[in-house]
Each structure stands twice: as structure tokens, then as C-alpha cells.
């Protein structure tokens, strides 16, 4: 059988990859790093916890789990739409700088965290445990350790294939790519920039909340409070920067580097905290050597210096 360490490492890497992919998606269209990404996943965790606690005694698991995934994705999509319309759009309309947009998403993170805290306080009255990870214990024991591994691996592949098909084989995908390349030019040709941005925020919210449902099932992950998501944010950012912030393939590579190294270090040192240090160190070195991330590194290795200078 597969050793529990590999299960933990690969499923964790998959979750980081899913979150990084959704971060990259919104970055490409809106040009702002979303500081709420971790808390988006926590939304999924809370929705799934509520559904599992309410329905697990009435229905078998093969109904409850898909329902949890669907509901979490829907709520995630709603949160994405709300973020776009309440936080991002009013600022873009007023011509705010990247700094202002960053502060706005940073603020949004605290608002969302606060709402989840209030929700957690209310949900305690309905038998949902305050330490939210405990809501998943029964299912985690029942479904076994390979569930998060298989499910997260399939999700990453599926998301990548879906994104590829949408971006390269549909008319909408062409407009998305045009908007990413040059927003002003795309707008003059008639691409609806707002639709592209809305699409990316909805997809980002959906994927993150979906990933959030798988998260608590991974062995060794103890999710206790809504701030857990924002505390994991450095890892997502590290994966994002390691992958080169504007490349989808890069975010998959970055996600794997960060996820696997984090788990490896955590197991070796026996403390979650030190698992953070290695991804951060990799990020720091990459920022010093080649700030554009793995994507640029590969380019430099393949293409000779002279041809790069011409570019």
C-alpha cells in the first residue's frame, strides 16, 4: 500500500496547487494578488462541515459527500461574485492603483474571517463543533486515507483540462486570453472585460471552496478556526511566486514544490511551523536569482543568452 506520508504529501500538494491555480486565474485578469484565497477555502470547509453534521445521520455518505462538494462550490461562487462586485469593481471603476486593490483584498480577508467566526459561534448551537476539523473525523475514518489523494489528484487534472479546453478551444477562451495579454486592446476589439473578470473570480471562488472540502480529510491537517486559511496564505503565495506569477503550468509546479517540501519538513522536524521555512527559502532565493519564477528559469536554460537579449 501507499505509505501515509506520500498520501499526505501529494494530497497537500494538490490542495496548494488548486488554490494557487485559482489565485493565478484572478491575478491574470485583474492584476491583483488575492489575499483572501486561503479564507475562500475556509468557506468550503465550513459549508461542508454544516452539511456533514446535518445530514450524515439521515443519508448515506455517497449522497452527503457530493452534496457537500456541490454546495461548497456554489457558496464559493457566490463569495467570488460578492468579492468582485463589492470590493474589486468599485475600486477599478474609480481607477485605484494596485496598492489600493491589494489593501482592499487584505481587508476583505479580515471581513470574511470575521463573518466565519460569527457563523462558527452560531453554529455551535446546532451541534457543529467549534474546532471545525472535528466535524470531519467520522467520515475521515470511514472513507480512509486514499480518498483525499485520489480525489484531489483527479480534481487537479480535471481543473487543468477544463481550463485548457475553455481557454484554447472556445470563443470565450480566446477573449479571456486576449484580455490577459492586453486589456486595453482587447476592449477596443470588443471583448467584455468585465465578463472575463467576473468569470475568473467565480471560478476562483468555486475551485478554492471545493479544495476546502478535501482539505480537512488530509491526515496531519488540523483545521481549528477560520484564521487557518489566512495563516496558510504564505504557502500559496510561495507557490505562486515560485511558479512565476503569470503561468498556469508554473503554478502546478510551484504547488507541488511547496506542498511536498512542507510535508517533508513537517514530518522530519515534527512541527508544522518549520514546514513553512523551506518554501519561503526557495521563494527568497528565486526572487534574488530570477524573479519571474520557474517559468523564466526554464526559458533561460533552453534559450541562449543572446536570443533572450534580443527579446
Amino acid at each position: 500500500m501507499v505509505s501515509p506520508f506520500i498520501v499526505q504529501a501529494i494530497s497537500y500538494a494538490n490542495i496548494v496547487t488548486l488554490l494557487t491555480l485559482s489565485l493565478t486565474l484572478t491575478y491574470l485578469t485583474t492584476k491583483v494578488p488575492n489575499f483572501m484565497q486561503g479564507t475562500y477555502a475556509m468557506v468550503g470547509v465550513y459549508v461542508a462541515a454544516v452539511i456533514i453534521t446535518m445530514l450524515s445521520s439521515k443519508f448515506p455518505y455517497y449522497i452527503v459527500m457530493p452534496l457537500a462538494f456541490v454546495c461548497a462550490s456554489l457558496v464559493g461562487a457566490v463569495v467570488g461574485i460578492a468579492t468582485y462586485y463589492i470590493i474589486i469593481k468599485p475600486l477599478i471603476v474609480r481607477g485605484a492603483s494596485t496598492l489600493m486593490l491589494m489593501i482592499a483584498t487584505f481587508t476583505g480577508d479580515f471581513i470574511l474571517c470575521g463573518i466565519l467566526y460569527v457563523l462558527a459561534d452560531i453554529l455551535v448551537n446546532y451541534n457543529v463543533p467549534y474546532m471545525i476539523g472535528l466535524a470531519f473525523t467520522n467520515y475521515s475514518l470511514m472513507l480512509g486515507q486514499s480518498m483525499p489523494l485520489i480525489l484531489s489528484l483527479l480534481s487537479v487534472i480535471a481543473l487543468y483540462v477544463i481550463l485548457y479546453i475553455i481557454l484554447y478551444h472556445t470563443k470565450f477562451g480566446v477573449s479571456v486570453r486576449a484580455a490577459v495579454e492586453n486589456p486595453a486592446l482587447a476592449q477596443t476589439i470588443g471583448v467584455n472585460l468585465e465578463r472575463v473578470r467576473l468569470f475568473s473570480w467565480i471560478l476562483s471562488g468555486m475551485v478554492s471552496a471545493y479544495a476546502g472540502v478535501i482539505w480537512p480529510f488530509i491526515p496531519g491537517v488540523g483545521i481549528s478556526s477560520p484564521t487557518y486559511g489566512s495563516m496558510q496564505l504564505p504557502l500559496i503565495f510561495a507557490a505562486f511566486i515560485i511558479g512565476g506569477i503569470e503561468s498556469l503550468v508554473g503554478s502546478v509546479i510551484g504547488g507541488y514544490i511547496v506542498g511536498i517540501s512542507q510535508t517533508l519538513l513537517t514530518v522530519l522536524t515534527g512541527q508544522t511551523v518549520y514546514g513553512f521555512v523551506f518554501p519561503l527559502a526557495v521563494m527568497t532565493v528565486l526572487l534574488l536569482v530570477c524573479p519571474r519564477g520557474i517559468g523564466e528559469l526554464i526559458e533561460t536554460l533552453i534559450i541562449s543568452r543572446r536570443s533572450l537579449k534580443k527579446v
Binding site: F237, L280, L288
Partner: peptide, 28 residues
């Protein structure tokens, strides 16, 4: 490491360092 870069890199980098150092201080 990040001072030469654009402001979004710098923001992400500084946030990352801060959160990780806080974790280490808090737990160790």
C-alpha cells in the same frame, strides 16, 4: 531579496515572511 521588484511581489513576500515568523514565535 524583494526590494528591486514590483510592489505586488514585495507585498506578498513581506506578508509571507511576517506570517511565518509569527507562527514560529508563537509556537516556539
Amino acid at each position: 531579496p524583494a526590494v528591486r521588484l514590483r510592489e505586488d511581489y514585495l507585498a506578498m513576500y513581506l506578508l509571507g515572511v511576517a506570517v511565518i515568523v509569527i507562527w514560529i514565535l508563537h509556537y516556539n
